[in-house]
Design a protein around this nucleic acid. Structure first.
Lengths: 332, 332
DNA sequence: CCTGGCACTCGATGATACCGACTGCTAACG
DNA sequence: CGTTAGCAGTCGGTATCATCGAGTGCCAGG
């Protein structure tokens, strides 16, 4: 599509724009890229790139700014070649060397790490691992009418739905716990039984059915979202309206989770501007990478930044952290 | 301290400034307050108020803007008289009528409600209720070396610390679960036993001791923070720097939690600007109210906004929501 | 095809003037 | 003596205008 020289020029424009956030002129391209031609030639090429939709001019006498198409070309051309500087990868390494403990905390720290080293907003979506098993299930009465079911999966996720029960005694609770334990513990969460065999005790059967239903619900919704570094958004954009819009999106967990799953489903690792499909994120780009625990997809980590974010660094960071996170979680 | 007229004028200035975010001139005071004097008289009074530190002039030919001292006087003068409009209190009522379910979700929705009806950033700090009891404790092995302890308190909080154990069999896990259950269930979290009696089985004793220590740690830190509506900060301030600073603070859970506890300890319900003791919050005000579950302090809800926030509304909202939340949680 | 040169465009910057909101002061008034 | 009308003065905000310069498109010559 683009010959070598156009491609070099385009990459140089994007690179430079990412660094300076200022429109890039032909002179700057000659100074920073490896093309050995005059600025006049670059001007001619840039006019073509503009006609092809890779660049635009904010106004006649300004330099060029990349369009989404321009960013897309840039990102595609650097796939796989991202790199982190030493201190960053050092930080990641030492973090995962020290990392331990419970899943929730682990993800919370990971999202903080990712945000800190890249100066962007980081997100982690933890999905219900399809193949994880139920490790434990227990009914805990909280009040006379409310009982909490505590269910732990092998991936370390704790579910805690509540059900309303007309007060039954401790024996019933214990019986239901035993019944559920027998039939659920050890089974994969995706192959949850539809119903439980009757026990002859009506109270036990009623409570057990309600509990099973609550467990099913809880296992289905469960996709937890962790966000960190939203404050970086205030540095990335100049107008408060943009910041407000982006923060609003970030607070809608459902939107973010489905956005990320959608991006992943489309086989992308980077979604630029309107590619996200979320209108207020027009000025943003999202870089994602799934992580795997024991060979199974377990969640996704991502970085959200302005379209002029440092893609090379973001891709490398996301790739490294997802790999390390998966490995650490697999080790348990 | 201030005579009736000065106080009326000062209140009018603050009220007006809260509404318009513009410096308030003597003319505007005459138009909006109930003082029946000329603007010249108001000017004289305002000069005195400025000398006394209640107001400042951004520049010579502008109206007056309240100082922190001015806001403080205003807030003190309306204590207890806050009011919500009908649709807002209606929303609160219908929310709590429908509200049910598990504590974590409950608090998450509450903080969202509070943020929505007031158009400010809302926070909820859930503290470990001192008198809540341990309802259940169980060891759940996740991997061969990591075991999770799931502990549920009567307030519905689930603690889930992990410990590392050199692989012991299921019998040991079961024995430790039984041991801990016997000695912990039913005791208040603040009167946790120091040690457990020996059982003669060395593995059981070792694991039990580790588990007890982990439980103690987890029970001690536990103050969860919920934040919603941070996007409103982008509407409250005009400069991105301010927004960034405030968002940064909001992401530091520890700072926010101790800020709120500190404000409460000082017996305040409103902390204005530097009264918060957190430098980047100089332009913010915090309105807080504790909530009680079964007569015991269980946490705090708060609203964070610019110093020119609507205090009357905020005080009323925080008071109403904390009362309702406490009542709903007490019912279970 | 490339390039030096050149006229041109247009945002950014800065100077200048003007408007208007608001003040402080003073003198008059009840 | 407190209050008020009137008035001169202050100063930020806005509009106007000229200037500057970065960057462009185009053309003619290599």
């Amino acid at each position: 599509m683009l010959d070598d020289r156009k491609s070099s020029i385009l990459r140089a424009v994007v690179q430079r724009y990412i660094e300076t956030a200022q429109p890039v002129g032909s002179g700057a391209v000659v100074a920073t890229s490896d093309v050995r031609v005059s600025s006049a030639t670059v001007r001619n090429e840039m006019a073509v790139l503009e006609a092809d939709g890779y660049l635009i001019q904010p106004h006649t006498s300004a330099g060029r700014v990349p369009t989404e198409k321009g960013y897309r070309f840039f990102v595609d051309s650097l796939k796989g070649r991202g790199s982190l500087d030493l201190s960053q990868s050092q930080q990641v390494r030492s973090f995962f060397a020290r990392a331990h403990g419970e899943l929730e905390n682990m993800l919370r720290s990971t999202v903080h790490l990712l945000s800190t080293i890249t100066d962007n907003t980081a997100v982690v979506v933890q999905e219900g691992s399809d193949r994880s098993q139920i490790r434990s299930v227990q009914l805990v009465p909280l009040t006379s009418t409310v009982t909490m079911i505590v269910l732990v999966t092998s991936s370390g996720v704790v579910h805690k739905p509540t059900i309303e029960v007309l007060d039954v005694g401790d024996e019933v609770t214990a019986a239901v716990t035993a019944l559920l334990s027998t039939h659920l513990v050890g089974t994969p969460v995706r192959r949850l039984v539809d119903s439980l065999p009757g026990t002859g005790n009506e109270d036990v059967d009623t409570v057990a059915a309600a509990a099973l239903e609550a467990v099913r619900c809880s296992l289905n919704d469960h996709a937890a979202l962790y966000v960190d570094g939203a404050a970086h958004m205030a540095e990335a954009f100049e107008t408060v309206e943009t910041i407000r819009d982006v923060l609003n999106i970030l607070e809608q967990q459902l939107v973010v989770v489905s956005l990320i799953q959608d991006v992943l489903d489309r086989g992308l690792t980077v979604a630029i501007g309107t590619e996200t499909g979320v209108e207020p994120l027009a000025g943003c780009a999202l870089v994602v990478a799934p992580y795997e625990v024991e060979g199974e997809h377990a969640g996704t980590i991502g970085l959200l930044g302005p379209t002029r974010m440092n893609y090379s660094e973001a891709l490398a960071a996301v790739a490294l952290v997802s790999r390390r996170l998966g490995r650490t979680l697999s080790e348990g």
